[in-house]
Amino acid sequence: MSLPFLLFFAFALVAVLGAVLLILAKEPIHSALSLILVMVALAVLYLLLGAEFVAAVQIIVYAGAVMVLFVFVIMLLNAGVEERTNWSKIATWVGTPLAFFLLFELGHFLGRSKAGAAIGTGSGPGVSGAAFSTAELSKLLFTNYLFPFEATSILILIAILGAMILAKKEE
């Protein structure tokens, strides 16, 4: 078994374990920490795929900024152990079969897909070489995707204003 396979399975296991811990944790702060674990494991997988820029953004923006925001709100609201309530009957009798149906569907379609398509053998136009180059990515971002890029800056601005107005204490 080669090194990429070993790395993939190790960090895939870490990611799945983190996601399971997120579900099993009783307190929101433990869920947040396991979500950070998932994000860091995914960043390593992005590096394995040669997407260096995305891996860096994943660590800086997701594991850094967004999760700090989550942890800060958990601290601010003093969120403790999740309180248990009664399950609704509809959730038990309709939700459980539907959940199993979704899992079956996913497994069915993944089983049908050919496992032979290897990564890194593509010869289409675009990037050649081992890793995606950040220079090429930025060129694409500032030419073909310039308008969506500028639109996201307005989106961020509106989000900041909205968050400030929502979180403001009314007089």
Partner: peptide
């Protein structure tokens, strides 16, 4: 990576930006 196209990474970038805005609001 499978198709060696950079557009997928640009979409990931936009998803991350929208996720950050969504988390703040």
């Amino acid at each position: 990576r499978a198709w060696n196209q950079l557009d997928g990474l640009v979409f990931v970038f936009f998803v991350i930006v929208v996720a950050a805005a969504e988390a703040a609001v």
